[in-house]
Deep mutational scan, measured.
Amino acid sequence: LVRYRTISKIPQITLNFVDLKGDPFLASPTSDREIIAPKIKERTHNVTEKVTQVLSLGADVLPEYKLQAPRIHRWTILHYSPFKAVWDWLILLLVIYTAVFTPYSAAFLLKETEEGPPATECGYACQPLAVVDLIVDIMFIVDILINFRTTYVNANEEVVSHPGRIAVHYFKGWFLIDMVAAIPFDLLIFGSGSEELIGLLKTARLLRLVRVARKLDRYSEYGAAVLFLLMCTFALIAHWLACIWYAIGNMEQPHMDSRIGWLHNLGDQIGKPYNSSGLGGPSIKDKYVTALYFTFSSLTSVGFGNVSPNTNSEKIFSICVMLIGSLMYASIFGNVSAIIQRLYSGTARYHTQMLRVREFIRFHQIPNPLRQRLEEYFQHAWSYTNGIDMNAVLKGFPECLQADICLHLNRSLLQHCKPFRGATKGCLRALAMKFKTTHAPPGDTLVHAGDLLTALYFISRGSIEILRGDVVVAILGKNDIFGEPLNLYARPGKSNGDVRALTYCDLHKIHR
């Protein structure tokens, strides 16, 4: 019993810090008490220290592992850092350059016999395009090294910054494609005289377009951006097909006994025919423009016929181009109408809503002055909100995010209106959640004399007048207030005048 009563005193000691020596009952000389009392004092002292730490809000209350900052290894790049964003855009520009100039170089340097010394005699450094290609190869190699040090988000939505895990993730992902696209074939085969082989191998750079397509997928929600990307894709495919079309004609031209190829026909049409040795002929500019003209006309199913396939190889390629053109029509131009419709969806919704308003007016036989006010209010409210119901949009977000959005939407009023000066951010967040926005066209009466005042109004834009009878008592403008002081009276009061809008007004109100 003594032991039980001794232990039962522990909660009292913990909360009230009572010393055991003052209790005459606990001072009985028993061996059990002498053993338990020192333990009680020690526990009391420890609990006292913990309570003191909690009340003082000291940093040592938290466990040590929670006080440590997340460790980022040296030379690790955050995937959302500004440097990584700028670097990704730079790589994107280099990939676009590669997609345009690599097929052009591979096709127009394929057994090209233009006048001038061969590239091997001039030297590697004197070729501007080769120098640019070398810079692109170096940048792609540097990009691989950067990807080995860039964080990523795993399946659990955690940012991984450990170098080993980053390397394994990159090896399992895009490393092989990036490595093949970054191989400097110019340096590996330079001086061997195989410019045709170098041009063909350099087309491996186009593998990076797969990554670019995935990154550009984030802009699919913007109709104008999608339309622009589709047109660029169409032009890029036409450019690639033009390079292939020229390569076919250029390879067949020296081996044909009869002059029936499209390059021969082009030379005869523009007065620059090929001679018996295969030299001469149109310039590279004429060849490229004509090839691009043929691919565009074939892809769009126009086909004027002034550039036509004559050999079997050219006919087979033309059939493939027609098939590609039909697929592009289905996948690209078939979506253009939907994209344009999405661009004008706001206008369509406006006309639909206006039609419903006019049908309501016609069905209920609203008189002319009231009908005009109804239409003007709808037009003004639509121009202010673009038909978007803010309350319906915010309803799907958590309250903390709703408060931040409301604070942002009402920031101008909260910053410049005098009653809100000096208020804490928590108070402003709470008030912003209570605001209701209303609009009024010129001549609209917001409050009639004798109406119950259940709200306090803040003028965000425009001006109003307060009338008693036919006498203008006051004219209020931006950041002015009218209405009933909230919670100042037990019952809502009545208006002693009319409140009429002089201009288009936007008002925020808080109800009782």
Score class of each variant (00 low, 15 high):
P419Y: 15
R358F: 01
V132P: 01
T424K: 09
E64Q: 15
V226L: 12
A181S: 11
K418N: 11
F420H: 03
G261R: 01
M322R: 03
F185N: 04
V95Y: 01
T438A: 11
A213M: 05
Q402K: 04
V357D: 01
P103L: 01
G249R: 01
A119W: 01
A181Y: 01
A440Q: 08
I77S: 01
D88H: 01
C126L: 02
N368Q: 12
H380N: 08
A181T: 04
G193D: 04
A432Q: 01
C126A: 01
V86C: 12
I189E: 12
R421Q: 13
F171R: 01
L206Y: 01
G193F: 12
R208D: 01
A235T: 14
L207E: 01
P128Q: 03
F360P: 02
I198N: 09
S194K: 15
Q269G: 01
H380C: 10
V226T: 13
E64W: 11
S81M: 01
W262I: 01
K436G: 09
V307G: 01
S276A: 14
V180L: 13
Q379R: 10
Q379T: 07
T233H: 01
P118M: 11
F228Q: 01
T76Y: 07
N335W: 08
L110R: 15
D88V: 01
K66I: 07
K272D: 01
T120D: 01
I340F: 08
S383W: 03
Q269D: 01
V132E: 01
L200M: 11
C122P: 01
S345R: 06
S277R: 09
P273G: 01
F294Y: 03
T352L: 11
R356K: 15
L374C: 10
I96S: 01
Q68G: 13
E196I: 11
C427G: 03
P118Y: 01
N154A: 11
Y65A: 11
T102E: 01
A69T: 09
A381D: 14
A242K: 01
I324D: 02
V95A: 01
H416S: 10
G325M: 01
A167G: 04
N335Y: 13
H264F: 04
Q341F: 04
P117L: 12
V357E: 02
L200C: 12
M433G: 04
